[in-house]
Simulated assay, not measured.
Amino acid sequence: MEDTFLNVYPKLSAADTNNPLNLTGLWLAHGDEPLLQQWLIDAMRSSWRAQNLAIKRVELVSSKTWQEVMGELNSLSLFDDATAVIVTGNHKPDKAMLQELESFASMANSGDNQNCMLWLTGKVDNRSKSSKWYVPFAQQGHVIDCNLYNENQRQQLLTFQAQKFGLNLLPEAWQFLMVQTEHHLLSAYQALWRLSYLYSPQTISPNESAIDTSELDPAAANTATTIDVAALKNALVSDAQYSVFDLSDAMLAGNAAQVVKIIEQLKATEEPTPLILWAISKDMRLIMQLMAGENPQSIGIWSSKQSLYQSACRRQTPQSIADWPDILYQCDKAVKGIVRQPAWELMLQAALRVTGHRLFY
C-alpha cells in the first residue's frame, strides 16, 4: 500500500497508549527531508511502546547488513513481546533477503508475526518503483512518501504543528514566516517552537510534536493564540550568536575550535537539542553516503556545498566513520533522556568527529 506523509501522519499521531495501532510488518518511508522521517518515527513510537515492542536501530553499511535486520526480526525476547527495527541507509536487499522479507510480510499480515520493520531511505523515483526490491513493500507492506512537493503541502503540515502548539497564525504571518525562513521546513518549525514558548501557555516538547487529529478543527483554532507579523518577528530573533547552519559549516570546514565555540554558545542560549542533533546527524549521514560512492546531487547536496562535503570526506576513512551510527544513536537516546550521559557532551563528540578530531580514543 502506498500513501503520503500528510495522509498517514495524523492517523498515526491520533493513536495513544489507550488506543494504539497495530503497527506490524514492512514499512518503507522514503524522502529527502529527514525531519519528516523523524516525525514519522515519533508518531509510531507510542503504538510500538503500547504493543510492548522493543525499538532497535540498524544502519545499513552494505547489502549484507540485511542479515542483521532479519536476525532482529526473527529473534525472541524474554522481556518484550516483539521488536520494531528502524533501518537506515540505501543498500538494497539481495534476492535471498527479498524472499525472507516477503515471508516476514506474509506472516505479519496473517498475524503470525508481531514484529515491525521501518526502512528510512532516500527518495524513490518512478524508475526504482519498478525494481524487485520495492515490490514487497508496495504489495505486502506500507510505503510512505515523505516528501513535500509544493508550498501548500508545507504550510498544511506546519499548520498542523502550529495547532498542536496552540497557535493560529494569520495569513500575513504565514507569508512572512515562509519568506523569512526561505521555505525551509526545519527553520519554520523552529520559529513555531519559539512562538509557543513566547505566547502559548501550554506547550509540548519537540519529541511530542505529533499531531492530534482532535485538535485539527475550527474549534481548536478558535482557542489557539492568534499570531500576527509583529509577534512572529519576536520569535525569529534568537539570542544565540550562531545557528545550526553555522555549526554545520564549521564541522564541514574541519574547524574544531569553532565547533566547540558554537556548541558552547548554543548550549548557553538553550537552543533545542533535537535541532542540534538533526544538523549533526544530517551531515554525518551525507558524508557516509558520499564515502559509500553516492552522487552528491542525487542525495540532495547543493552545488555550493559540495566542495565542503568533499573536503570533509577526505578527512575521514572507512574505519573512522564505522562507529558514527552508534554515536548518533547514543546522542538520540541522551536527547530523549533514555541515558544519563549529557546530550551536549555526546553531540560535541559527534560534531568533532566530522572535523576529523576525537575527544576519546
Rank of each mutant, 00 (worst) to 15 (best):
H30C: 14
K129W: 13
D16E: 09
Y9F: 15
F245N: 00
A221P: 07
A257G: 04
G31H: 09
T273W: 08
F79W: 13
L286C: 01
S243P: 04
L23Y: 12
S47A: 09
L73N: 04
I211G: 02
S103I: 05
A14W: 08
L216G: 01
S131V: 02
H183V: 10
P10K: 01
Q202L: 15
T24Y: 10
A14M: 06
D3Y: 00
V87G: 07
N19P: 03
L252H: 04
P93K: 08
T121C: 15
W48E: 08
I287V: 12
Q319I: 02
Y189A: 13
K282C: 00
Q139A: 14
T269N: 02
E151Y: 04
N19L: 13
P318L: 03
A105W: 10
N7Q: 13
N234Q: 13
A268V: 04
L232K: 08
D249H: 04
P136W: 14
L192S: 05
T317G: 00
E271L: 04
Y309D: 03
S46G: 01
S214C: 05
W324A: 01
A292H: 06
H183D: 13
W193E: 11
T181I: 12
L198H: 02
D81Q: 14
G141T: 09
N207W: 08
P171K: 02
G25I: 14
L98G: 02
A191N: 09
S238D: 09
M107R: 15
V354S: 07
N7D: 09
S130P: 00
E151K: 11
R57L: 02
K11V: 14
G254W: 11
G300S: 02
A82P: 14
K267Y: 12
